[in-house]
Design a protein around this nucleic acid. Structure first.
Lengths: 130, 130
DNA sequence: TCTTGACTTGGAGTCGACTACAGCCGGTAT
DNA sequence: ATACCGGCTGTAGTCGACTCCAAGTCAAGA
């Protein structure tokens, strides 16, 4: 699969795919004639995995480490699991924080809607909070 | 309230508080003798608000705009509400994405645990996926 | 044969969000 | 009087994560 196809399929710019590979966030992609990249099924799985994890905010550094461990084989299964457990904990925490903030936004929006209604009935009962 | 107290209370570095004020992410803080900042209750509410929203990933740009609108008074209530509604939508989407990823991590971790167990009973039934 | 277009590398530039000084000021403790 | 805080401004530097570009290669089509 050419880089253009991968870009199209996963919606990741070509430059970014090359960059990911260069820094070791993707395994070295096999090259065909003239050094042109030819992404295998497994390469694509990595691309998708990285997109997913980056989308959730995992750092590039951590993902490079994960790939590195993966490439070292079965010896690193424990280390990989620990890495994922750690990242999961952080993700959980972030998620919780964001849920709280979402609720706060809900509350504020309701507040703004109340103000607007109050104004319509000429009864301004709003308080000044951020 | 001095900047040091605010730093301590909200766990935001002094440099960052000054930076936030400079770029208009906080309203101009009143100064006492010798130009020293004296944060009011309302200033603190903004600090806390900004910390919360930044923590959820809202951009500085958007928050500056929100403060700007707020400072323009009641004329901008609608605009502010719209801004919040938009940001809430984005936050919801991000949250959903992260939830999916969290589940995926759960799944992968379980998978790694299975591998470890399998190995203990000399029955390696694992597949090679990222 | 020449051009076009998809790909390559290597390196530099950008962007958002801080973060770290250098150098100065004013009040208090020794 | 001096030294030390704690704060101030202004500017520059850092960091993570891309993003852009020049210059080159190669294959296929007019």
């Amino acid at each position: 699969m050419t880089i253009a196809k991968v870009t199209e399929k996963y919606n990741i710019p070509e430059d970014t795919l090359r960059y990911y590979e260069r820094i070791g966030l993707l395994p070295p992609v096999h090259r065909g004639k003239g050094g042109i990249r030819d992404y295998t099924e497994e390469d694509c799985r990595w691309v998708e995995f990285v997109r997913c994890m980056r989308g959730a905010g995992l750092s590039i550094e951590v993902l490079i480490e994960y790939l590195r461990l993966y490439q070292l084989g079965d010896e690193t299964i424990d280390a990989r699991k620990n890495l994922l457990v750690e990242q999961r904990a952080q993700l959980r925490a972030k998620l919780e924080e964001m849920k709280q903030t979402l609720e706060r936004l809900d509350y504020k929006i309701v507040h703004y809607e109340k103000i607007t209604l109050d104004k319509k009935v000429e009864n301004p009962s709003c308080v000044r909070v951020p």
